[in-house]
Simulated scan of single mutants.
Amino acid sequence: MAASRAARLAPVIEMAEKVERNAAQRLGHLQGQLQIAQGKLQELEQFRANYQEQWIKNGTQGVSGQWLLNYQRFLTQLETAVGQQRRSLAWHENNLDSARKTWQDAYARACGLRKLVERYMAEARRLEDKREQRLLDELSQRLPRSDGY
């Protein structure tokens, strides 16, 4: 009985393990996407720092009003790009957190189902052991005794 319950759960476990594998793959993919977004943000921030250093270097030599206006416009565009990339990074972090929670839930479900099957199998072994012991006890009672009576 317990063994058949365990057998009936096999397709459910397979499905739960497939869901867990898919969640793990998605988690891995999103971790990669987050790393790409972090890299882009670092690149933008480094570019902005280099651009500001150029301003300091050129500013000491004197610059025209037009150069200053162009510098300010481009710096504003860079700041906008950095802000957008930070929002993108936050979006990727939220997606990763959500995927991690989904994977953890799927992993816990698959583990719980495996433990349930193990419990059913252990119960089936115990029942089988009891049945065998009962049979052995019955057989030993039926055998003629050789203790002198």
Score class of each variant (00 low, 15 high):
Arg126Met: 08
Phe74Val: 00
Gln35Gly: 02
Leu96Pro: 00
Ala6Pro: 05
Asn50Tyr: 02
Pro144Asp: 06
Trp67Leu: 09
Ala110Ile: 02
Ala6Asp: 11
Gln133Gly: 06
Arg134Trp: 14
Leu139Pro: 00
Ala24Glu: 08
Leu96Ser: 03
Lys101Tyr: 03
Ala16Ile: 03
Gly62Gln: 13
Gln77Leu: 10
Met15Ala: 15
Lys18Pro: 02
Leu139His: 09
Ile13Glu: 04
Leu75Asn: 09
Gln38Arg: 13
Leu41Met: 06
Thr102Gln: 10
Arg5Phe: 12
Leu127Gly: 09
Ala10Arg: 13
Met1Thr: 14
Met15Pro: 01
Asn94Trp: 08
Ile36Val: 15
Lys101Ser: 09
Ala124His: 04
Asp97Ser: 10
Lys101Phe: 05
Glu138Leu: 11
Ala7Ile: 02
Tyr51Trp: 11
Thr60Trp: 00
Leu34Gln: 08
Leu127Arg: 12
Gln33Phe: 02
Thr102Met: 07
Thr80Phe: 05
Leu135Pro: 00
Lys101Arg: 11
Asn94Arg: 13
His92Phe: 07
Ile13Phe: 06
Lys101Glu: 13
Ala16Val: 04
Phe47Arg: 13
Ala108Ile: 03
Lys130Trp: 04
Arg109Cys: 04
Arg145Gly: 12
Ala110Glu: 02
Ser98Lys: 10
Arg73Lys: 14
Glu138Met: 11
Glu128Leu: 11
Ala124Glu: 08
Gln46Thr: 12
Gln42Thr: 04
Phe47Thr: 08
Gly39Ala: 15
Cys111Asp: 13
Gly28Ile: 07
Gln25Cys: 05
Asp129Phe: 08
Leu139Asp: 10
Gln85Met: 10
Ala110Val: 03
Met15Glu: 15
Glu132Thr: 06
Asn94Pro: 03
Glu118Phe: 03
Leu89Cys: 07
Ala2Thr: 09
Gly32Met: 05
Gly28Arg: 05
Val63Ala: 01
Gln31Tyr: 11
Ala122Gly: 13
Arg114Lys: 15
Gln141Phe: 06
Gln25Phe: 12
Glu53Asp: 14
Glu14Ala: 15
Ala23Arg: 10
Asn22Ala: 12
Thr80Tyr: 04
Ala49Gln: 13
Met15Phe: 07
Ala2Ile: 01
Arg125Phe: 09
Ala108Asn: 11
Glu123Cys: 05
Ser98Ala: 14
Ser140Ala: 13
Arg125Leu: 14
Gly59Gln: 03
Trp103Gly: 00
Ser140Trp: 01
Trp67Gly: 02
